[in-house]
Simulated assay, not measured.
Amino acid sequence: MHAAPRRHPVRFLPALIATATLLSACGTSGAAGSSKADEPTTKVTVTPAAGSKSVKLGSAISIRADGGKLTSVEVKDDQGTKVDGRLSAGGAAWASDGKVRPKTTYTVKTRAKSTGGKESAATSVFTTEAADKVNKLTNTPGGGQTVGTGMPVSILFDNPVAKDRQAGIEKALTVTTTPHVEGAWGWVKDYSGKDRIDWRPKDYWPSGTKVSVKGALAGIDSGDNGGWFARDYNFGFRIGADHKAVIDVPSHTLTMYENGKKVDSVVGSAGSPQDPTRGGVHTVRSKNAAETMDSSTIGHGNEWMLDSKWVTHLTASGTFLHSAPWNNKLGVANTSHGCFGMSTGDAKKVYDFLTIGSTVEVNGTSNPNKTDVGNGLEVWQESWQQWQQRSALK
Rank of each mutant, 00 (worst) to 15 (best):
S383C: 10
G142Y: 10
L173Q: 07
G91V: 00
T359I: 15
V108M: 06
V46Y: 11
V75M: 01
R231P: 06
G301D: 05
T283F: 01
D248F: 03
C339N: 05
Q166T: 09
L156V: 14
T110I: 14
P152H: 05
P5V: 14
L70S: 12
Q274C: 05
S207R: 12
A216C: 04
T319S: 00
A131M: 09
E258L: 04
D78S: 15
S366N: 05
G117W: 00
V267I: 09
V134M: 02
V134E: 08
S62Q: 15
T146Q: 14
A270D: 00
T344W: 03
A131Q: 10
G219S: 06
V134N: 03
R11C: 07
V44C: 04
T45N: 12
V266L: 08
T283K: 03
V249E: 00
V362S: 06
T365R: 08
K43L: 13
D275Y: 11
V55I: 05
K53A: 13
P48I: 13
G271H: 01
Y106K: 06
G148C: 08
N367G: 02
T178K: 08
R101E: 15
G279L: 02
C339Y: 04
F320S: 02
L306C: 05
K189S: 01
V161Q: 02
K53R: 13
V161R: 00
S295C: 01
N302R: 15
T47L: 09
K133S: 15
D346C: 07
W384A: 03
T365E: 04
T178Q: 07
V249D: 00
D242E: 10
G148H: 09
A216Y: 07
G223F: 00
D352W: 14
K202L: 12
V311D: 02
S120D: 10
N363S: 06
W310Y: 15
T104K: 06
G223P: 06
A32F: 11
N334P: 07
T105R: 13
K133G: 12
T81P: 00
E378D: 11
Y233K: 09
S343V: 03
A93K: 11
D164K: 15
E119R: 14
P48Q: 11
A65D: 07
V362D: 05
G186S: 09
F237K: 06
S154E: 13
I247H: 00
T127S: 15
Y351M: 04
A241V: 13
R101I: 11
V350R: 06
T21S: 09
S24L: 14
V263M: 11
D38I: 01
A37T: 14
T127E: 13
N367Q: 03
R200Q: 13
A270M: 00
Q381T: 14
V311Q: 02
R196W: 05
W310Q: 07
D221R: 01
A65P: 05
W384G: 01
K189W: 00
K76C: 04
A245C: 04
A392M: 12
A333S: 10
G148N: 09
T292E: 08
T138S: 08
Q274T: 15
L87D: 11
Y233T: 10
S24C: 08
N375K: 04
D242F: 11
G150Q: 15
A347H: 10
I169T: 06
V175M: 08
K261T: 09
A15I: 15
N159M: 02
T174I: 11
T123D: 04
A130N: 12
V100P: 11
V44W: 00
R111D: 11
R7M: 09
D97I: 12
A89P: 04
T19M: 05
K309L: 06
